[in-house]
Design a protein around this nucleic acid. Structure first.
Lengths: 230, 230
DNA sequence: CATGATGCTGCCGGAATCTGACAGCGGTCC
DNA sequence: GGACCGCTGTCAGATTCCGGCAGCATCATG
């Protein structure tokens, strides 16, 4: 591996990590000593990369890239196609259409050889188990989450009891058989989750929630002891 | 100017020229001798850049090395993130890493507002049911499919009987709890599918199959009465 | 607050790579 | 056919790179 290849590889590694990554880890991934890694970082910085390092924390690549990203690898194409096929099969229709649209956009930008890879991918999504019917349109829920709008919910729990409540919806979790809306519940003053097949009605308010969705998600994750998303 | 800086500069010069440009011209623009310019071109090619040179004509950078700018709608971003999260969670590690890599590439090319959307998406993938352990590495199976290589399989069926067979693997189907390898079986002279958790061993041959993977997939789909993939 | 983890920089000797000049071969275009 | 062009090998000298070592500073955590 030439030095230039290594620098390029280092840039790609940095792009992939979402959290600070230690110099030692980067040195292992690029196959050099820690001292050389420091030099490589300095070289990337000299090339204009916005790499920042903090003692005790690690390195992070900030926006402001010196080079457009390199083209997808064949395996990355496979991951994209498989993922979009799953979304098209398992999510609501508008989201499924968006998945197809995204894939078409990607295909349009590919060189011929990779476009063939994309069209011919041998990774398929098999049919899932039947899912309980939903009254409320998942697209409406997704829009409320994205826009950070409070929702008026009519919910029927496991025992058949119906309740009305106002929630701050911050996430929609896809399980194999059900979808679950995650929210902060004003009625209970706590985090709650709601199976979408048990939501009888959902009306978005014009009113936004007083906390950012990302912060709620983070707090919920901490509360639930869940790892960070990739 | 370091060599890396010069290579980057050369790549930018190539991107800027719409018509073939001579080595002499490029040498002047980068401040090196013609011999060194030839070496620099070779280095860029070693880095994967699609630079082509013709005697009497000059050099041209073909599309396919760098990812072109891709613009997605917010819903398309959600579809991409959800799909990549699912792949990262449900596929084998190398494919999961590729999903993360693909998403990082897409993120790298987005304007700040859409990048924020991508990082903050409220669509999550919940944990799946436990899956029976697999002896054979799915990545090996994916590679054989992609490369259209015959596989020697040792398979144990539902009743516990072991058989050896040579197959032409053309697909890998992801169900909620199992993965299924699709192939044409030389032993049975017909299409067969194999649960990956029942594959005891799989050895790729150097030998390719006599039919294209895409054609086999199409025929299998017709046979199974399945709709075409998006 | 102490400690471990981390980033950072300089120095050194030896190894590796790079450079320009020169030589020579073959292809394209007008 | 001639001008222009890409391409490759060789060489001596110049330049850069590498890992190990030393030492300093900062951050996060128990």
């Amino acid at each position: 591996m030439s030095r230039s290849e290594r620098l390029l590889s280092l840039l790609e590694v940095l792009r992939r990590h979402r959290h600070p990554v230690s110099g030692r880890r980067l040195a292992e991934e690029t196959g050099v000593s820690l001292r050389t890694l420091y030099r490589d970082i300095a070289s990337l910085q000299a090339l204009g990369a916005t790499v920042e390092g903090e003692p005790g924390v690690g390195y992070v690549l900030r926006p402001g890239y010196l080079l457009p990203p390199l083209m997808f690898s064949p395996e990355e194409i496979e991951a994209l196609v498989l993922g979009m096929r799953w979304v098209a099969d398992r999510a609501d229709d508008p989201l499924g259409r968006a998945a197809r649209g995204a894939l078409a956009r990607i295909a349009a930008g590919l060189p011929a050889a990779l476009r063939t890879d994309l069209e011919d991918t041998g990774l398929l999504v098999g049919p899932g188990a039947p899912r309980p019917p939903e009254t409320v349109d998942p697209a409406l829920l997704r829009r409320a989450i994205r826009a950070e709008r409070k929702l008026d919910l009519l919910y029927r729990d496991e025992a058949g009891r119906e309740t009305r409540r106002v929630i701050w919806p911050f996430g929609l979790a896809f399980f194999d058989q059900v979808r679950v809306l995650l929210g902060w519940c004003e009625l209970r003053g706590d985090f709650r989750h709601f199976r979408t097949d048990r939501i009888l009605a959902a009306t978005p308010r014009d009113e936004g929630f007083p906390k950012r969705r990302a912060a709620l998600l983070k707090a919920w994750r901490l509360r639930e002891g869940m790892p960070s998303t990739p």
